[in-house]
Write a protein that binds this DNA or RNA. Sequence first.
DNA 1: CCGAGGATTATCT
DNA 2: GATAATCCTCGGA
Length: 209
Amino acid sequence: MSLQLQAQPLTAEFYSQPATTVARKLLGARLVRVLPDGTRLSGRIVETEAYSGIDDLASHGRHRRTPRNAPMWGAPGRAYVYLSRGLYWMLNVVAEPQDQPAAVLIRALDPLEGIDVMQRHRPDRKLAELTSGPARLALALSVTGALNTADMTQGAELWIEPDQTIPDSQVRTGPRIGLGKTPEPWLSMPWRWWVGGNPYVSARSGKRG
DNA sequence: CCGAGGATTATCT
DNA sequence: GATAATCCTCGGA
């Protein structure tokens, strides 16, 4: 007899919603990573970005389907992990129904479980810099291209489960980060969501509010 | 504290 | 050949 219901991974049905809806609802949820040796690492999601549709000129799905971006057209709830700048892995969750290119980038975590192991993955980093950015959290949780297309609805090595609910009064939105020369209106589209005042929101995002 | 520039490589034009 | 959904270090104030 458990006194409390065990949290279950978010389902494909959840991820089938519009990427913007998924991005908002993921705030406060818990990203869980189980390492090959069984170590469990987790953190609360405090910053996300939505990339949706072939119209979105900031999205990898803006052009044709290619070997790299193909996961964005795939089943909702799978991981889309790609290498940025030849150096850093970015973790996304595929959103919206099959054949619609969309994903949500996980940009920052408030660390919960396995903080000592995360710090071992990022030697000599301050706690505040452990998971405050998409590449940082990928390093802390040992997320690499090996997890590309992994099914995040199964509770195996990587998934997201409900945890806290963040009220609208604490949610902030703004333009996405690092879009370079993406034209308007996509450059300024307020498709980034974060938890106001949370210290782990990525630095370049601006933590105002 | 802040801004500039380098690292490093898969991927696409 | 150019670019990229970033991070880190360094130099200057």
